[in-house]
Every structure is written in C-alpha cells, then in structure tokens.
C-alpha cells in the first residue's frame, strides 16, 4: 500500500537525517519501528504523513505518487499520524477533536466510545479543553483515540506508550491489535517497548537515518545491538540489560 523509494531528508547544509530509505508496507500489517534515540523514526513518520517533504525520493500510496501531496490530501487518502508529542489547543474540546478526526458531528455517546477504547472515563473528559490542564498521559490517550476514530488505511503512531501507565498499556496493545484486524488496514507503531515489538508482525530497525534491518523480532534485535557504538547507546544498553 505504501512505498518509499530512495527517500532522503537533509536539513540545510547540515547532516542527512534520512539516508536513502527504501520501504514497502503491505496492507493488513502491524509493523513496529524501533531503534536508538535520534535514529530518524519520527522524521520518517513526518515524511510519510507529509509534515516534512523529502529532499530526495518518491512516495507512493496505493499506486499514486503522493510525494508532492499536502498533509491534508494524504490524510484524506487514508494516512493517519499520531504525534510523539500531542498538540494542545485552547478552547477546542476533546469532543471537538474527535468530531474533526471522524469527519462528522458525533453525539456525546458515539464520541465517548473512542475515549473508552483508550481507557479514559468519557464523562470526565469529553467536554474537557485540550489545554495545559490535561496530563501528558491523558493527552496521549486522546491522540490515540483520534487515530482510532479516523480508522484509516494506514495509521502511524509515534511512541504511543510514552506516558501511559502500565495497566492501561496492556489494554492499549489489545486496541492496536484490534485496529489491524481489518485485512485492509495497516498500523505502524514507533516504539521502544518490547511488548509492542512482541506483538508486531514485523520489526524495522532504524539507526542513524537508515533502515538497518527488517524482519521478525529475533532477527532484528541482535542486529540493532551491533549499532556503531552500543556502549554509548542508551537503547542498546537497555536491551543488553534486559
């Protein structure tokens, strides 16, 4: 469904953040992207969703060249992107945002359903403003709820586990599994969480702006550990200790 060919991303006369990335994602897949901090995972997600334009390369989605399409056009074609750091808005309520995501005006009851999915008590949250009053974990769950509400062909979630407590996390994994039950839809989760890597169909490891390995967990993790400087790589150390 999604194909990235020779995608590079360079910031002005500085380093290459993505280096000639080639990637194909089939429909109905659950893919996890992992790798050390600064490896380029979020950048890749931004390139796919259109937030950033690649400096080189081509992106196709269901056969259509979307390289030059706007964020809006890509969203409308069926790409969703849950941010690593959700955005806050003064005056826009949780209900408003779910309506925007769904593209229709839902009743309180229908909108609440998506909050329950992410373990938020709907009546406490549905009318809340998306302002600084929400905790990090709360706003993160709301972000995930909007992606569930959109229910598009491709959903990319950037570190959805961040800030979410352990108990809810188990439930969230079920939610992700459910999201990809549809044979049509694919879900890509950027994560450092082994639990997520465990349930994914495939793992993609990104180091230093390049995909170093793709495959089942057993084959990818060892490769990751051979990153250039594992001793000074927090990610590798975590895995080494585990």
């Amino acid at each position: 469904m999604l194909k990235l060919e020779n995608i590079s991303f360079e910031v002005e006369n500085e380093k290459e953040i993505l280096k000639d990335v080639n990637l194909t994602i089939e429909k109905g897949k659950f893919i996890a992207i992992t790798g050390p901090n600064g490896g380029g995972k979020s950048t890749l997600a931004r390139i796919i969703s259109g937030v950033l334009k690649p400096t080189k390369g081509k992106i196709t989605f269901y056969g259509e060249d979307i390289t030059d399409l706007s964020i809006t056009d890509r969203a409308q074609r069926g790409i969703s992107f849950g941010f690593q750091q959700p955005v806050r808005f003064k005056g826009i309520t949780v209900h408003d945002l779910i309506n925007i995501a769904k593209g229709e005006d839902l009743s309180v009851m229908d909108a609440s359903h998506f909050l329950s999915e992410v373990g938020l008590c709907a009546k406490d949250y549905i009318h809340r403003e998306l302002n600084d009053g929400l905790s990090g974990g709360e706003i993160k769950r709301i972000e995930i709820a909007t992606i569930i509400a959109r229910n598009t062909k491709l959903s990319i979630l950037d570190e959805p586990e961040a800030g979410i407590d352990l108990w809810s996390f188990n439930h969230l994994i079920e939610v992700f599994m459910k999201m990809h039950q549809s044979k049509e839809n694919s879900i890509v989760i950027i994560s450092h969480q082994e639990r997520i890597l465990d349930v994914a169909d495939e793992i993609i490891a990104m180091v230093d702006g390049a995909i170093v390995k793709r495959g089942a967990k057993e084959s990818v993790l060892p490769e990751l550990l051979h990153c250039e400087d594992p001793k000074n790589c927090l990610y590798c150390q975590d895995i080494l200790e585990a």
Partner: peptide, 23 residues
C-alpha cells in the same frame, strides 16, 4: 499541522483554531 493530519484543509484548520480560541 495536527488538524491537517486529521483531514482539514489549511483554511478549515485555521477557522477551527480561531473559533475554539474565541469560544
């Protein structure tokens, strides 16, 4: 950007943000 990733056009996103802000 957030509202555009949810499918709104630039103009629609701007209107939503202003409406909410002055709500």
């Amino acid at each position: 950007i957030k509202l555009m990733t949810l499918g709104l056009t630039e103009g629609e996103a701007e209107a939503k943000i202003i409406d909410g802000f002055l709500n």
